[in-house]
Design a protein around this nucleic acid. Structure first.
Lengths: 129, 129
DNA sequence: CCTTGACCTTCCCATTATGGGAATCCCTAT
DNA sequence: ATAGGGATTCCCATAATGGGAAGGTCAAGG
């Protein structure tokens, strides 16, 4: 099947499918006319990538996960290790963001939010250190 | 003062100071030899930017906040509106990440994590839809 | 036989913020 | 003079995604 149908059936845009190919994640056949030709197995790979990306795995991780997926002799420990490292990264970023949000929310709560110019948010940003 | 000292005293790298200049956020004088020359007011701006970036405000927001900061007739409502919109963005991203983390954590909890190949994490990524 | 439309191909550009590194210039102290 | 430490500009790279151009391919239909 051509890239358009592969995109429709995998839920991955044609643009991204080509990109994943440059990254070595999918390797479709080529027809004589130069068109990419996707097999069902390629579709499965594309869906795998989509699911992994939906969980925000970076492509580097996706590459490793794909390799493990294909490896019948993999150790589930390897998969789990990648997943848990990613979980840690996600949680750390999420926490950092929520800390920023909380601190800003606190400042905003003390801001009149009217026509007056004085504002604790700007006061905070203005501090010297 | 030259860019090196400005970097030291503001906590912003020389590289980023130059970048902020290309974005129109800081506009130091130039000496005859072409060197940038920072006044105390520029330092204050750089610190302001650093604080705003520490709260993950995108540069576009920083630009607006700087304008309001300089405007003696600003309405604190405008500042607050920018801040709260950013808070909403932060919280939404943080929530999305935590949802992903939670779902992955759940999958990982059901993964043996040993030498066996079967793994619910891969099973999930492999699903058809 | 040729046109039209829907595909496909590759290539370039942009996004956001940050940094690395090269080539070149400037100034000061030896 | 020359060596060292800064400074300047310019290019490149990051991660993932998309926009868009220029041109090739193919099937249907006049």
């Amino acid at each position: 099947m051509n890239i358009g149908e592969a995109a429709r059936r995998s839920g991955v845009s044609a643009k991204m499918i080509r990109h994943y190919e440059t990254q070595g994640l999918v390797t479709p056949q080529r027809l004589v006319n130069g068109y990419r030709d996707y097999a069902e197995a390629d579709l499965a790979v594309l869906r795998f990538i989509r699911h992994a990306r939906a969980l925000a795995f970076p492509l580097e991780d996706v590459r490793k996960l794909l390799a493990l997926w294909r490896d019948r002799n993999r150790a589930s420990a390897d998969v789990r290790q990648i997943a848990l490292a990613h979980v840690a990264a996600l949680e750390s970023k999420a926490q950092a963001m929520q800390a920023m949000a909380a601190s800003l929310r606190h400042l905003a709560a003390h801001c009149h939010g009217d026509a007056r110019p004085d504002c604790p948010i700007l006061d905070e940003l203005e501090k010297s250190p």
